[in-house]
Write a protein that binds this DNA or RNA. Sequence first.
DNA 1: GGACCCCAAACTGCATGCAATTGGAGCGCG
DNA 2: CGCGCTCCAATTGCATGCAGTTTGGGGTCC
Lengths: 252, 252
Amino acid sequence: MAARASSKTSESSDKVSVICRALRRAIIEQALEPGAKLPEDALGERFGVSRTIARHALGQLAAEGLVELRRNRIAVVATPSWQEARDAFDIRIELERLVVRQLAGKLTKAQIAELNAHVDAEDRARGGTDAVSIRLATEFHILLAHMTNSPILVRYVSEVAYRCCLTLSLYSRPHSTECAINEHRAIISALAKGDEAKVMDLMHHHLDSVANRALVAPTPQRGRDLLDILAPYADEVTSNRVVKLPKVARRG
Amino acid sequence: MAARASSKTSESSDKVSVICRALRRAIIEQALEPGAKLPEDALGERFGVSRTIARHALGQLAAEGLVELRRNRIAVVATPSWQEARDAFDIRIELERLVVRQLAGKLTKAQIAELNAHVDAEDRARGGTDAVSIRLATEFHILLAHMTNSPILVRYVSEVAYRCCLTLSLYSRPHSTECAINEHRAIISALAKGDEAKVMDLMHHHLDSVANRALVAPTPQRGRDLLDILAPYADEVTSNRVVKLPKVARRG
DNA sequence: GGACCCCAAACTGCATGCAATTGGAGCGCG
DNA sequence: CGCGCTCCAATTGCATGCAGTTTGGGGTCC
């Protein structure tokens, strides 16, 4: 029996949604790197809509954590800190364990075929760019989430997976995807067998190893951003904004 | 040692954010029941802003799953199906287990005092309305999430907790809160002792019992909405929208 | 040469206006 | 009495315009 009946997907065909999808994809394919500026005018012009719409789209992406929005400032692609990246993976592990727990032994043959077809596509894409490989790997997990037919689970898994993609741009070494593909196959097989405990374990270790390969080391200096490094030192500042560095006459 | 260093909170003081907070609170206190209409004009007028801003706020709340937005239709407070409610609780259990796992044995005395103070407040509010009790109980969980200092975890726990509040309005019998308060105290105590396994179990059963008390029964007919009941029968319709019921000449 | 200041360009925050869509009241018909 | 039709008020979708804020570059003074 299929895991739940099918249901309608969210995200209609608003102009806003179209822009969101486009930007999301650009971000996870790393065409837009973390920190890239996203001025409303430019987006509006590029997508043939008014600034109002572009702005709204940015708001949605900010709600998903892919974009950072600071008042009166140009929006930028989010640059999660190393710790946030680790947190995202931790959450993702729990959510995806839940996914495979719900799915174990409940997939139709058609669904299993669909999953296998997807992994085949991942395989074929191995020659291509990293960006495409990463996107396909991510979409495998989202495909799984869809099969639970729990819209909430789909949303959260998608979001957190996208965020994890983001962190790959930041902290990953050029990575090898073959093992990930094999792990995907193992997961499908365990799902088909209905071995709940095993598939949860497989998913856990799969994501953990992806995280460990991606988030190379605590390397505190790779925080990438001066502001992150200085953040702890600015705690006593009352205002929300970091104090305007006053010329730093570095007398010791 | 405190669990992580402090960090700045998100959600600035935009007009949009103000409206979001107000609506969120109105929703979780059940002043706005599921299905309640939220016309942009009315909101704008009520909050003294333009429709643009109200619209943007609705977009944010829709992204959080508290509001349903259908093209060209008045926005309404979300009415999750029974299954969605159950899914939300399942996700919530996993997320909050993660919260207490990270927190066990890592809370400062000040943090423990803060938690106790909150539960005291819950206790004092027992005489008041259900709405306030529910809000306080929810805020206890969000307070816990905050102490992890993981912004992502805070966001997801908050969202899913709010969604669970929503389902209480729909499917809950007038419920008794005392036991929940005791369970909160037990969780604090186990956190202080640092008993990771135990606190995860406590949280699990706490949320599970809340869910079971709230989601009274599968009662398939309480789906509340004709569309939900008919949804499975509309699967073969190609378009996204349900076919316009053509007068249903109910010949057998 | 470098620190400081000031101003214009760029950009965001928000309100308003107009066209398109909806849904419901009213009305006619079987 | 119920069903279907038409039409209009209510409402959304979106673009544009204006005001306020930030940015960054050139000129000035040390």
